[in-house]
């Protein structure tokens, strides 16, 4: 598994197959975002290991991590755009830092990426002037600027209207299909998850249930079915305590959805 990653969280083990959209589901406080931060090296695992692309990153120094992160792209929940820079500068930023492209080449690439997420004429806008949906799309474009092998997406649908949700979902699916990019999406939006995920990791208190959406829907576990049908509120009651659990190795399953 060249690009496969494997995150271990509170005695919980899960694998994200390469080239697939994996969605991490779970109630708030279940550690969904923590998984992304562990994969990105933003947080350090206190025990166990985090393997990204066949390399254990838990023992790497911060400067070694920068090497790993160049192969990762991350779309933050609230965009995390640098608010002192315009959209163009925000998108140019990673390339100005890490490539030798000229200003014009960078600008061309920025416009390509913006077009890919359905935006144009936003170069000179500041992040605070963008709507919620636009922020997410600009953040997605920025995460893609360096053609990452793995895209980490934190709550792409939070705070969005249904239309924008569909748009972002379609974008993620298209990028996954056209580039075969490995994606780890953290979400609690059940319908879109069921449509787009090729692999679902459901974080329950102290346990992890993994599988493709169809398999989860027909799961024997009552908690899983309830989570998938009743949305997050119901799951809050389940999230009471944690205990040690080890999930087995999982075979990658591909599936697109729209």
């Amino acid at each position: 598994m060249a690009y496969g990653s494997r995150a271990v969280l509170r005695g919980v083990s899960c694998a994200f197959p390469p080239g697939t959209i994996s969605v991490v589901l779970g109630g708030s406080g279940s550690g969904k975002s923590t998984i992304l931060k562990l994969v990105g090296g933003l947080l350090r695992a206190q025990a166990g290991q985090v393997v990204v692309g066949g390399r254990d990153i838990t023992s790497l120094s911060e400067s070694q991590l920068y090497g790993v992160r160049r192969r990762l792209g991350m779309m933050f929940q609230n965009g995390a755009l640098l608010d002192s820079l315009s959209v163009l500068e925000n998108l140019s930023f990673p390339l100005r830092e890490h490539s030798r492209l000229t200003r014009d080449q960078i600008k061309t690439r920025v416009h390509e990426r913006l077009a890919a997420v359905g935006l144009e004429d936003v170069d000179d806008l500041m992040p605070r002037e963008l709507s919620g949906g636009m922020v997410k799309r600009v953040a997605l474009a920025r995460a893609l600027m360096q053609d990452p092998e793995i895209l980490l997406v934190d709550e792409p649908f939070s705070g969005l209207d249904p239309l924008s949700t569909k748009l972002i979902e379609a974008l993620l699916v298209r990028i996954n299909r056209t580039r075969g990019m490995t994606m780890i999406v953290v979400s609690h939006h059940i319908p879109s998850t069921m449509r787009m995920a090729g692999h679902v990791v459901l974080l329950l208190p102290g346990s992890v249930v993994q599988g493709d959406p169809a398999a989860l829907r027909s799961s024997e576990d009552a908690r899983v079915r309830r989570f998938l049908t009743e949305d997050t509120d119901a799951s809050e009651q389940i999230l009471a305590h944690t205990h040690e659990f080890e999930a087995g190795e999982h075979a990658p399953v591909r599936r697109g959805g729209a």
Binding site: G40, L42, Y66, R69, G73, F76, A80, L81, P94, H98
Partner: peptide
């Protein structure tokens, strides 16, 4: 964190 993920200290 966004900067760190872009491999910028």
């Amino acid at each position: 964190d966004g900067l760190r993920m872009m491999a910028v200290d």
